[in-house]
């Protein structure tokens, strides 16, 4: 009953409707781009990029003196992309593996951002520096204009995905074939990664750095269980992302101390668990019903008993 009341409240309350709409927009955009990240085994790149955005946010503020979201978002995007380029450079030119490079980019960029932020404020105490907003986001502060900005940038990113559909499909599944067709795979990779940066940057204000990576990974990982087709997976990921966004916003209104970001992540996590269990054909509860791999006959063919051969 309480849940029903809250939903009605949301639909009638302008502020809450705005927040839910923002969370849904974010869920759709990060779901779609997350699908490619998960397929290309780059789930943790999102985590690294969201942390790498911090120095860009601080520098953008230092250079312009403006605190408006588009300015800070531009700064976040620039340093997020710088982080990715460094990632590619180090992984390609040295023997350091991708996991280490991700850890380095994530933590060092974040450290530099923290140092800049505290230097800017002339206060060594990071807690006073307003960093909490960046770390955990403040969905509650979303206003209609913010949602508009999110929708415009997110919509533009989705439009690019639609236009380069075939190219991104090739990039995800058969890069070499794409290259043999003469497609600029390297450039496409940079474009796709830049789009992921856009998705992350528009999510920072709502859910913050720490939890943004879950919104990239979870809807896509859930969607992957239900289908083997890219188109269906992308649509499902968008749907799951939006569900997590709206569901999380509604649930967080139910009780004290339920911050929106963490609740959205928990809803997304629940969708993953359900998908892992229930998805037809792949899901864990279907495993018992599937006939066992015919191990015994195979063995007897490969290693025939004495006298049979």
């Amino acid at each position: 009953m309480q849940l029903f009341t809250v939903i009605v409240e949301y639909l009638s309350d302008y502020t809450l409707r705005t927040i839910a709409l923002g969370a849904a927009t974010l869920g759709v955009v990060s779901g779609v781009l997350g699908a490619y990240a998960v397929l290309r085994r780059q789930s943790l790149v999102g985590d690294a990029m969201s942390h790498a955005a911090l120095p860009g946010v601080v520098l953008a503020f230092m250079l312009t003196g403006l605190k408006s979201p588009p300015v800070l978002m531009a700064g976040a995007a620039v340093s997020g992309i710088a982080g990715v380029l460094l990632l590619i450079l180090v992984t390609r030119t040295t023997r350091i593996k991708e996991d280490s490079t991700l850890g380095i980019v994530l933590s060092v960029f974040f450290g530099v951002g923290l140092l800049l932020l505290t230097w800017l404020q002339h206060s060594p105490d990071a807690r006073q520096a307003g960093l909490t907003t960046f770390l955990f986001g403040q969905a509650a502060t979303l206003v209609a204009r913010d949602v508009m900005v999110m929708a415009i940038f997110g919509g533009a990113a989705l439009l690019v995905v639609a236009l380069l559909w075939k190219e991104f499909k090739l990039l995800s599944f058969d890069r070499d074939f794409g290259a043999s067709l003469g497609l600029p795979m390297q450039a496409l990779e940079v474009v796709l990664t830049a789009l992921l940066v856009v998705a992350i940057v528009i999510g920072l204000q709502a859910v913050g750095v720490v939890l943004m990576s879950a919104l990239v990974v979870a809807p896509a990982a859930a969607a992957r269980q239900w289908t083997d087709r890219l188109g269906v997976m992308v649509l499902l990921a968008a749907l799951f992302g939006a569900t997590a966004g709206v569901g999380g916003t509604i649930l967080s209104g139910l009780g004290r101390g339920l911050a929106t970001g963490p609740v959205i992540v928990l809803v997304a996590g629940a969708l993953v668990v359900l998908s892992l269990l229930l998805a037809p054909g792949r899901g864990l509860i279907w495993r018992g019903r599937r006939p066992r791999l015919l191990a015994a006959p195979t063995m007897s063919v490969t290693y025939p008993a004495e006298g049979q051969s």
Binding site: Q42, S43, L44, S213, G261, P262, V265
Partner: peptide, 20 residues
């Protein structure tokens, strides 16, 4: 799920539980 996605799923969920 692949390993990178598994890491990306597990830690935000446990962390969210802790934050709440």
């Amino acid at each position: 799920v692949k390993e990178d996605a598994a890491i990306g799923l597990v830690f935000p969920v446990l962390f969210s539980v802790a934050v709440i």
